[in-house]
Nucleic acid binder design. Structure first.
Lengths: 211, 211
DNA sequence: GACAAAACAGGACAACCGGTCTGTTTATAA
DNA sequence: TTATAAACAGACCGGTTGTCCTGTTTTGTC
C-alpha cells in the first residue's frame, strides 16, 4: 500500500522527514473533496495545487500521475468512508436489518442537516471512472464487494442466532446497497434527501419484524 | 424545443433544407454514445467531430456550446431511453409490480446478451453533471421525476382496480427506481449483471402476490 | 561533518481544449 | 432571377491541461 515511503533499509518504517503537517494528506484531502464535488476529469491538478497550497513538484513527488492520485483517493478515502458510514455501524448494530435501517436514517438526517446532497462517495467515482480505466474499475469494484460481504456476513451472524432464516445474505446485502446507492443518486440530482426516507419506508426492512 | 429551426415567417415549420441524412442526428448519436461511455468531461468536441465526420462549423451551427449539446442529449436521448425501457413497458404491463419485475428481467437479459454493462443512461450523466451545472441538474431531475410519477401513476391505477391498497404509490416508485439505479451502478462497476437479478429476488415485488 | 536520498520548489513544454471567426455552398421566399 | 438566411467548411486563437525536468533544501545514516 505505502510502497513510496519505504527506504533502502526496507525493514523498519521511516519516521516522518519533511512534511510535518502532512503534505501528502493535505493533497489527498483536497483531491477527495474536488473529485467528489467536481468529478475527476473536471478537477485540474492546477486547481488542486492551488487549493492545497502545494507546488507542482511536491504533488508530482507524492503522486506521479493524476491517475495515481485518484487511485490513492479511492483506496484510502473512499474505502474508509464506506467502512465508517456503513460497515462499522452495521456490524455494531443489533442485527443486519436494524443496522441497514439505522444507516439510512443517519445519512438522511445528516443530509437534511447539511442542506445539500453531495452523493455517495463510492458511486460518484464509480460512475465516472469504472469504464474509463480497468485499474479504477477493479479498485472500485473491490470496495463494493467488501461492502456487500460485510452486510451479508452480518446476516449470516443473525442466522446463527436463529434469525433471518428465510433470507439470502448476499441478496439482502445487494438490495440494501443498491437501494441506498440509487436513493443517493436521486437525492443528489433532486438535491433533496426525502427520497432516502421514502425508500426506507417502502423497503421491508423497517416494517417487517426481525424474526 | 426546436427554436433553431424556426424562420422569420414564424408560423409554419420549415422543411428540411440541407442535412438530408440528418447531420444533427449524427452528432447527437455520437455525443450520446461518448457521453455515456467516456463521460461528458472526458469527451472532447474534437473526438466527437472526428467520430461523426462533422466539421467544427457544422457542430457549432447545431450546438453553439458543448453544454447545449449535452442538454440536447439529455432532453432528447436520455429522456427517450427512460421512456422506452421503463415508462412504456410499465404502463403496458398488467400491474405496476409486474411491470417493474419484467423491466428488471428484460434489462438483465439484455445485459447478459451484450456481455458488458454500460450503466443507466440517466444515472451516468446525473452523477457527473448534477453538481456541475444547475441547468444540467434541473433537466436530469425532471427525468427522474417523470420516471417516478409514471410508476406511481400505474400503482394508483392498480389501486382503482382494487389492488395495492396498502401501497404508497410514490414510495413504491422511489424504491423501484432507486433499486434499479443502484443495481445498475453495481453491475457497471463489477461488469456483471447478476446483481440485478439478486436485487429483484430480494425485492418483495416478485415474491409477494399482487393483491 | 560527509554523504546519499528523499522532499520539495518552480519553470518549461507540447498537446489539447472549447470557442470564434471568416468564407462558401445550398435552399427558400419573393 | 434575385435576395436572404440557413447550413455547412475549415482555419485560428487564447487559455489550460498533465507531465516532465532541473535545481535546492531537508532529513537520515555512517
Amino acid at each position: 500500500m505505502s510502497a513510496e515511503t519505504t527506504t533502502r533499509s526496507g525493514s523498519r518504517p521511516r519516521k516522518r522527514i519533511n512534511d510535518p503537517e502532512g503534505m501528502r494528506k493535505k493533497v489527498l484531502d483536497v483531491a477527495e473533496e474536488s473529485f467528489q464535488t467536481r468529478g475527476y476529469h473536471a478537477s485540474s491538478l492546477g486547481d488542486l495545487m492551488a487549493a492545497a497550497r502545494v507546488s507542482g513538484g511536491a504533488l508530482h513527488h507524492h503522486f506521479p500521475t493524476k491517475k495515481a492520485l485518484a487511485l490513492a483517493v479511492i483506496d484510502e478515502r473512499v474505502a474508509a468512508a464506506v467502512e465508517e458510514t456503513w460497515i462499522a455501524p452495521v456490524l455494531a448494530a443489533a442485527s443486519a436489518r436494524e443496522g441497514v435501517r439505522s444507516v439510512f436514517e443517519a445519512v438522511a438526517a445528516e443530509l437534511e442537516r447539511q442542506g445539500y446532497v453531495r452523493g455517495c462517495p463510492l458511486n460518484n467515482l464509480a460512475h465516472e471512472l469504472s469504464l474509463a480505466d480497468p485499474d479504477f474499475r477493479v479498485a472500485l469494484a473491490g470496495i463494493f464487494a467488501a461492502w456487500r460481504q460485510a452486510i451479508a456476513g452480518k446476516v449470516m451472524a443473525d442466522q446463527r442466532g436463529g434469525r433471518e432464516q428465510g433470507t439470502d445474505p448476499l441478496r439482502f446485502a445487494a438490495l440494501a446497497i443498491a437501494t441506498y446507492s440509487g436513493a443517493m443518486s436521486m437525492a443528489k440530482t433532486a438535491q433533496d434527501a426525502t427520497v432516502l426516507r421514502d425508500c426506507l419506508a417502502a423497503l421491508p426492512i423497517a416494517t417487517r419484524p426481525m424474526a
